[in-house]
Every structure is written in structure tokens, then in C-alpha cells.
């Protein structure tokens, strides 16, 4: 676990409002294993919970898509995509930064599908974005969160 991420050793207490769920399909690259993303999506579909699915979060960021504003501003959110550091700065680059205590990122590049789906559908919430810091104080190993 990373000391500079917002990851917490125990899940936050369950709040009456369930975190929103966002699934990124990483459509334009092969960096997320197909079997992982398909299984995560299948579990979400089986569960019948509401969720948002985007073909490519990177593309939304480059487009500064206003949909990111809704996603960033609406309270707690669990995101199945890739590295938390990348997701943090993709939202920020679009002008809609995530709040570090409000986002949990599951990494489909490094985590198992069942682990990710379980975390998405569980009541608990483990925020894990890298904490904001000034670059002067950034040391190498504690600057990025990882859900791996």
C-alpha cells in the first residue's frame, strides 16, 4: 500500500448513498487485457446496478468532455480503468479534478477481474488517488498511488 495515496487500510464506513460506478473500456489500445475488462463488465451487467461506461477515458479527457464534470463532482465514485495516477491527472487535464478522498480506482492493467468486480460491487470504499503535493516535496516512490 502506498503511503502517499489516499488508500486506507480499512474501508470507509458505508454511507447511505452508494458510490457511483464508472467503467472504462480502453477501446483504442490493448493495454488492458480483454479478458479482464470483459469479465468486469459482465459482472457489472449481471449485478443490475446502475453504472456509467465509457469507451475511453483518455479520449474524454482530451475532449474536455463535460461528462467528466458530472462524474468528478457527484460525490464518491469507484472507477475501473488503469493506474490511479493516470486517472487522477486525466480528470485534472480536462479541468474537472477528482477529489482524492472521493475516488477509488481499480486497475484493470494489474488487478484480477474478480478482485476488481468484488471491489466495485462491495459496500466499502477505499479511496486511493495519489495525494496532492507540491513537486518540490515529491520523492520518487511515494508520489503515486497504485491499486495493484
Amino acid at each position: 500500500m502506498n503511503s502517499a495515496s489516499a488508500d486506507m487500510s480499512t474501508p470507509s464506513p458505508v454511507s447511505p448513498v452508494a458510490p457511483r460506478l464508472l467503467y472504462c473500456h480502453c477501446r483504442y489500445a490493448q493495454v488492458v487485457p480483454g479478458a479482464v475488462k470483459n469479465e468486469v463488465l459482465r459482472r457489472l451487467c449481471d449485478s443490475k446496478v446502475p453504472f456509467e461506461a465509457v469507451p475511453d477515458l483518455c479520449e474524454l479527457s482530451a475532449r474536455k468532455d463535460p461528462a467528466l464534470e458530472t462524474l468528478a463532482a457527484g460525490g464518491r465514485i469507484k472507477i475501473a480503468a488503469c493506474y490511479p495516477r493516470a486517472v487522477k491527472w486525466l480528470f485534472a487535464a480536462a479541468g474537472h479534478p477528482l477529489e482524492v478522498e472521493q475516488a477509488e480506482v481499480l486497475n484493470m492493467r494489474t488487478q484480477r477481474a474478480d478482485e476488481i468486480a468484488d471491489a466495485l460491487l462491495a459496500a466499502g470504499f477505499r479511496p486511493n488517488l495519489p495525494l496532492d503535493r507540491t513537486p518540490a516535496s515529491a520523492s520518487a516512490s511515494d508520489s503515486a498511488g497504485s491499486a495493484a
Binding site: Y28, A29, V31, C58, A140, G145
Partner: peptide, 16 residues
């Protein structure tokens, strides 16, 4: 970072 790059830290993985 290039989030679609194959390896860290360029892909967003931790910087060691």
C-alpha cells in the same frame, strides 16, 4: 505520462 504506453512509469505506474 502516456496512459496507453506499455510500461511504467510512463503508463502512470509509480515513479521509483
Amino acid at each position: 505520462m502516456f496512459p496507453k504506453y506499455k510500461a511504467g512509469p510512463i503508463n502512470g505506474d509509480q515513479v521509483s
